[in-house]
Design a protein around this nucleic acid. Structure first.
Lengths: 330, 330
DNA sequence: CTGAAAGCGCTAACAG
DNA sequence: CTGTTAGCGCTTTCAG
């Protein structure tokens, strides 16, 4: 674990200048076959690897893309990240992930800030509080938003139409004859939560159904446990809603569990629809009726937008299509 | 998005030398209150942030820990990562994650290598092929293994005793009277897969039960879909095993789904036990009987080991305790 | 307490 | 085709 070899060591061993080593490293300029050979041997012998720092300093870019993930335990993000990685790798970029869960909002910023001098650009899946100049902060380097975005910020984003998707989900329930439809919503810090909630309200209104506050349960995260907690709330009501729209599959699954434990049947006693279409939705019992987000594509497009910004472009935001997956839970 | 301010800009604005700026930045040497004040104002005004590159080069350390995750879509890793993050942050380190899924093994190396000059140390949850000198490669910088490890490598690791845990799981099944016990195992590239498989074999042998090759299904990943595929295999058998031990909860869940679709009841017709105790295990229907790994603690200990190595120590490997969680599936 | 200057590892002109 | 050299942004002696 002694100090790692530097470009100078390679140059010495190969009997050339560091410039030449750099050239074979990057294929940036022609190098005579023999010389190249010698350099390559030295590299292998020393197991040399260019330092990201030296290179980053000299180039003022790192070929690194930072992805800010609010919470790894929600499988929703995993596929987005894979989409990002797919495109990023194609273009010679590596991705760094930062798990923001467990950090304070303020520290989020710190965390992001730390990396923002490290990465060439950032893709944020997280909510950023625009009230506190966080956006201001990040605006200084190329970044794009994915799924969670602030329309007024003027920052490019890719997302589905959360409000419309929620309307579709609730409308489906209404079409199936439901009149009392509960909502499990999460921390409204997230724009998508507010937007989906609005979709819920719109659908209700359009159908002439009353908006009953007791039918909306707000929880603090999207953990399964929060879904259970919300469902427990419904269970205390004089009469249970006949259907529940949960803002995420994880919440829906938690809710179903709680309903079942309480002896209710899903969908017979309560229908439940989720949101996201996690891989789990298909495998859960009962199969989860849910809004499918094109997660991988969200990630891919986010990466593409960022790459375009890095190339000096000003890409337009994109809205992708959602679909309703009908399975057994509603 | 014009070029970001550097330490020189701050120094100029504050009318001091860059050395002084550096000193207030790091609190490394006393600075007169007034001077400090001026510098701090300049920093705020310019929204200055030290460049990770410059700093990294000068210090030859980055306060960054790299965590190599085989696959984000397996929720198992999420909690480990959170454990790592918890300890890392306490000690002023940030963590970088690298998702290895979808990359070739060879590229894994490249990926790791890339970062290895960027991070001060690495925690690997991934399998590293020792045949090809990958270990050799990584041995040059401080790293530790978590959950997946190569005992002979002499590299510190933290893990449960996979073999013993598997024995416990199978023994439980045997105690419940099962005689034909199937195994769903994953890619044996992973040591833990081989170790758990061995535990399965040992438990069988000890109970005087025959090892029947047709009862072991090997699949290529731990996705739900693979669990379904393995179960489909069992369903073609003349007679179904009365119990199945799956090497991960995700596989177990996939298998249960397939069994149910085929009209089998779990646990009445087939009992299923999983491995990991994901948050989902409790919420899935039926509740999953499984081996609980102390995931968060695995992450915390891994981080602690790495930090100790970074501090120059030679920490011993640690084996943590697993427990059997009995729920409804077996 | 503060400034000048060297150097961390690398790339990119600029000469040859 | 190859070597020399000047930074990139920061920390850290070394003087003062």
């Amino acid at each position: 674990m002694k100090t790692l070899p530097s470009i100078t060591d390679v140059a010495q061993l190969a009997g050339v200048s560091i410039a030449t080593v750099s050239r074979v490293l990057n294929n940036s300029k022609p190098v005579e076959a023999q010389t190249r050979e010698r350099v390559e041997q030295a590299i292998t012998k020393l197991k040399y690897r260019a330092s990201a720092f030296g290179r980053g300093l000299a180039n003022s870019r790192s070929q690194l893309l930072l992805v800010l993930v609010p919470d790894f335990s929600n499988p929703f993000y995993a596929q987005i990240v894979q989409g990002v990685g797919h495109i990023a790798h194609q273009h010679g970029y590596k991705i760094l992930l930062s798990d923001l869960s467990g950090t304070e909002t303020v520290q989020n910023l710190g965390s992001a800030a730390h990396f923002d001098r490290l990465a060439d650009g950032v893709i944020s899946l997280a909510h950023l509080d625009d009230s506190r100049g966080e956006l201001e902060e990040l605006r200084r380097l190329p970044w794009v938003a994915c799924s969670e975005f602030v329309p007024e910020s003027g920052i490019p984003y890719v997302s589905i139409d959360h409000c419309q998707a929620a309307q579709d989900a609730v409308q489906y329930l209404i079409n199936r004859g439901h009149q009392r439809i509960g909502l499990i919503t999460a921390d409204e810090d997230y724009r998508w939560a507010a937007q989906r909630r609005e979709g819920y309200a719109i659908a209700l209104k359009r159908a002439g159904l009353p908006f009953e506050p007791e039918l909306v349960r707000t929880v603090s995260s999207t953990d399964y446990a929060m879904g259970q907690q919300a469902a427990a709330g419904f269970l205390t009501l004089a009469n249970l809603p006949s259907a529940v729209f949960a803002l995420s599959d994880t919440l829906a699954i938690g809710a179903i569990k709680a309903f079942k434990r309480a002896g209710k049947r899903v969908p017979e006693d309560v229908a439940v629809v989720g949101f996201d279409n996690l891989p789990l939705a298909d495998v859960f019992e009962p199969g989860l009726t849910t809004i499918a987000q094109p997660m991988r594509e969200l990630g891919e497009v986010a990466a593409a937008l960022l790459l375009e910004r890095l190339a000096g472009g000003s890409p337009a935001s994109r809205t992708l299509m959602h679909t309703l997956m009908v399975r057994d839970s509603a």
